[in-house]
Amino acid sequence: MPGVLIAGELAGGRPAGVTAQLITAAGRAFPGHAVSVAFCGDSLVDVGPFLKTLPLSRVWLLQHPALADGGSGGYEAPAEAFAALAEHATPDVMLFARTDFGANVGPRLGFRLGASIAQDCTSVTAGVQGGTPTVTRPVYGGSALAEFEMGGTGLKVIIIRPGAYSPAALEGGSPEVVSFDVTAVVRESRVKLISTVKEAQAGVRLEDAKIVISGGRGLGGPEPFKQLAELAGLLGGAVGASRAACDAGWIDHSHQVGLTGKTVSPRLYVAVGISGASQHMAGCSGSGTIVVVNRDREANIFKEARFGVVGDWQKVLPAFAATVRDLGKAAG
């Protein structure tokens, strides 16, 4: 069945938000094409009645003990299972979300099948003739945008950045639900999952915080992050940091905001002593309002900010915090 095959992911027994986003992407980029989804897991028999109403033409179920938790860790089993399905169903396009699952399984399968692989795309269009897909992806740490035409006749694997599309409603259809037998292709994984430990986090989760106070190289050491934490506490926010500050050991990497750290989109992002390298901005440019405190008026981050103070954070911040306290009292 040619068309579009979505590599689905489950979260808590329901299609994950990213999978709903892929359904939107498929509908917009490839209207009129058959879109199917495949889920993998240990046992999907009782996964839920929602499968029968997904707005798609077909739902594939791939079941194997090695596919428990989506094959998390080395992702060998899902790559084998999805590659076998791709060879059987011969889709023109496979869509993955750039989650840990998609970022591992999509490329592995793509290389195995000799596909064109487009990683971390923020948009997909089907091109003028509705044929060759064109993808857009941020490159150079987000400093530039690249557009690629995925030529050729072979399989195209497109891995989409989570959040690039809004989620589709997960009902209104009546797809065929088909089990695809992968017992012959899935081997025992060489990579064994030993443990998964959640990061201990005091206070508000960085990703969920409405206000983030971030520090960078300009802070000069670990000590100032205590002031940032106090201020964050005062505002009910969380503390972030640039990669430079984390790599210097001033604060734990769990606070790293950026391309390779966390992506945050708070209402208010206060950047202190951060120059605003593209790879940092990639993690915070979705913030409602960016406020900058920096000595260097030429720092890149001023270009993305709405409010800025050009000055020494050591003098600006205590006065800022004191005023926040006073305003709080006045309001209270």
Partner: peptide, 25 residues
Amino acid sequence: KMTLTRLSVPEKRRTVEIIQGQDDA
């Protein structure tokens, strides 16, 4: 396998409002 058809620098449209007091505090 893919052809780079366009490479551009995204525009940053925001204009920053600089808050300037008598001193840093």
